[in-house]
Computed example of a mutant assay.
Amino acid sequence: MMLTFGFVWAFCLLPLPLLVWWLAPPHKERTTALRVPFFRQVTSATQSAVSQGALVLPRSRLQMLTTILCWILLVTALARPERLGDPVTIEKSTRDLILAVDISGSMDDRDMEAPDGTRKQRLQAVKDVIAGFIADREGDRISLIVFGAKAYVQTPFTEDLDSVSELLNQTQVGMAGPNTAIGDAIGLSIRTFETSEVDQRLLILLSDGADTSSMMSPVNAAEIAAQAGVTIYTIGVGDPEGSGEERLDLDALEDIATRASGSFYYADDEQGLAEIYDRIDESNPRVTDTQTFQPRDQIGFIPLSLALVIGLVVLAFLHLTRPGRRA
């Protein structure tokens, strides 16, 4: 624990009473007096000393010490004493990340190979891998966008990773329509990034089909994203040899990533998808802004309370012990 003062200049007031005692004229007060014709005889009979001028009431040593101590305590309270706690370090991430996940009808195909060799639904395989990826994003802000025929913001930017994972688990194939609107997903991501105030902005777009229903072409959307400082990583999990909605357009996904300073990856199994996320992590290390501060507790009430208690105790003591007081 460390003690500091918020207004240390207050201690300049400590010698003020001494200066007033030295420089200020004494207080004078006129009072009525009784003239005694035989005053000299009275003083002679009582052997009292006679002096000219005002009468200065004597002060005991206890009164002087109490006055000095209370003044020091009052000035100390005015200096705003503060108790410093242990340093607290806060790490704030300077990276915002959007996961754009394709949930079109083709994501229901069961052609993703699990590590045990079984076949798994494409969307379920993606969910299982992304869950671990999200869990490792401690400190990052993540937004989740799902898209099919239309694109929707499932979660805005948040550091509540559990909520992102839970909402991702609740998504089902076809919830956003059967078609694939990659360009709209990129456009919605750009608008979502408008609320971001950090420099590192990543979009990870995962799709298993070709763009068929976007209002803006994916390539144009990628160029706009690059101008907005958004890096796009595209991941293809579909069948390049398919037809229609189920055909994965590898060239388009690669073109999107290239125009937005990112990279394109293709995965046909769950293990390969997990390795892709590891490579994305390696190429984009997390950047943090570290801030350290010490909590401050105001304790000015302590010297103020001590001054009040000491003053009252001494005042009561002098009152009880003054001469001439009857029991």
Rank of each mutant, 00 (worst) to 15 (best):
A267R: 01
P26R: 14
P17L: 13
V313N: 11
A79V: 06
G300K: 05
D249L: 03
T32F: 13
E254Y: 00
A33M: 10
L308C: 09
G229D: 04
D160E: 14
R325D: 05
A45L: 14
M175L: 14
A185L: 10
T258R: 02
Q227P: 04
L312Q: 12
W9E: 13
L3Q: 09
E254I: 02
S207N: 07
A274D: 08
L23T: 10
I224C: 08
I130R: 02
R325I: 06
G177Y: 02
L57H: 07
I190D: 01
S214A: 11
Y152F: 15
E138K: 03
T195H: 07
T192Q: 04
E29F: 11
I103K: 01
I103R: 00
V164P: 00
G324T: 05
R59N: 11
S93F: 00
G174W: 01
L123V: 04
W22S: 13
R322F: 10
A210E: 00
F5H: 00
V75Q: 01
L315A: 15
D268P: 07
M2L: 15
T234W: 01
A79I: 05
A135R: 14
Y277K: 02
I142K: 00
A228W: 04
L69H: 08
T234R: 00
A221E: 01
V36T: 09
L308T: 15
A151P: 03
V173I: 08
L16Q: 06
Q41P: 05
A257K: 02
V173G: 03
N220M: 12
L3I: 15
D102R: 00
V230G: 00
F264V: 04
V42A: 11
